[in-house]
Amino acid sequence: MTTQTVTIPALLGGSFNAYLATPSTQPRAGIVLIQEIVGVNQNMRQIANDFAKVGYQVLVPDLYWRLEPGVQLDFDDEKQRAKAFELLGEFDWDSGVEDLKASLSFLRQYPSSTGKVGSVGFCSGGKLAYFMATRTDADANVSYYGVDIDRNLAEATKIHKPLILHMSANDEYVSPSAQTTIQQGLKDNPLVTIYRYEGVSHGFSRAGSSAYRKEAAELAGDRTLAFLKQHLG
């Protein structure tokens, strides 16, 4: 496996950096890995490396580049967490989706690409993974504890490719009523699979954090890999 920083032309002008992890074998397919609110930090790079080790070409775009390029924060640090929420408050979601479309195109055109590319996103990236399902032609999408999906269910009719939602039963950022709204709003769509993990909070897959819960994280990870293998190869 090799890693590098690449530069991607933005569809709206300018360019942004992304972390690219390339497997040592012929790539199965591509994954656009979508950052949490803390930026492209060590945790996101490690997730990318782990996907690359099982054969995927993984791209992690710096979605905060218009606000503060290269930001890397620790969610468990109170001051850094506050800054992350500040950045998120300034983040333009529509521009972020356009950057993800550019990332999708970059991976599809990359040498040795199979042409199939999906997305996996966490937290705010989980919301963006949902938008990847509703606003792009990504081949398969995985959302981990995505926020505000209940407020964007009007877009659900545009889902034409398989989507997984991993939901934390005790998510402090997605209320029980919001989770019920999501489940009711998507239950009739055969392309959507919802997994709910009891007894865990937001960020249960964030390795090394106070929220990390090994059993739930490994179960969600196994389900994600099986899903990606089925739909991306």
Rank of each mutant, 00 (worst) to 15 (best):
I8P: 05
L104R: 11
L20F: 13
L87E: 01
P111K: 05
S175A: 06
N17V: 01
A48W: 08
L63F: 10
D148G: 01
E218G: 02
F16W: 09
I194H: 07
Q57S: 14
G185H: 03
L153G: 09
T3A: 14
L232S: 04
T224G: 01
F122M: 02
A169P: 00
T193V: 12
R135A: 06
T22H: 03
K116E: 05
Y212V: 02
L228A: 05
D222T: 11
N43E: 07
A226C: 01
S205L: 05
Y110W: 12
Q183R: 14
Q72I: 06
S168A: 15
S209G: 11
S103A: 14
V120R: 01
D137V: 11
A10I: 08
N152P: 02
S103M: 09
T25R: 04
Q80H: 10
D137S: 09
T224D: 00
D62I: 00
A216Q: 14
A178I: 00
C123Y: 08
N152W: 04
Q230F: 02
M132V: 02
V6M: 07
S205D: 11
P23T: 14
S113P: 01
K214L: 14
Y56C: 02
Q183N: 10
T22R: 05
T25F: 04
E90I: 00
N43Q: 13
Q4C: 04
I159K: 08
Q183I: 06
E36D: 10
G30K: 03
G126M: 10
G96Y: 09
G126N: 05
A178Y: 11
E155A: 14
I194K: 05
T224S: 13
E218R: 04
Y130M: 02
L59M: 03
Q72Y: 02
F51Y: 15
E215G: 05
S119A: 15
G118V: 07
Y64F: 15
I8D: 11
P162W: 00
A29Y: 04
N152E: 11
V192L: 05
T224V: 00
L128Y: 08
D76W: 11
Y56E: 05
D62A: 06
D77L: 04
E78V: 13
G146Q: 02
S201Q: 12
L232K: 03
T2Y: 07
G126P: 07
D222I: 03
S15H: 13
K187L: 00
K158A: 13
G30E: 03
R81D: 12
A84V: 11
Q183S: 12
I194T: 15
Y110I: 00
G233D: 09
V192N: 09
L186F: 08
G89Q: 12
Q230L: 10
Y173L: 15
E155W: 05
G89A: 15
T7P: 11
D94T: 14
Y130K: 09
T7D: 07
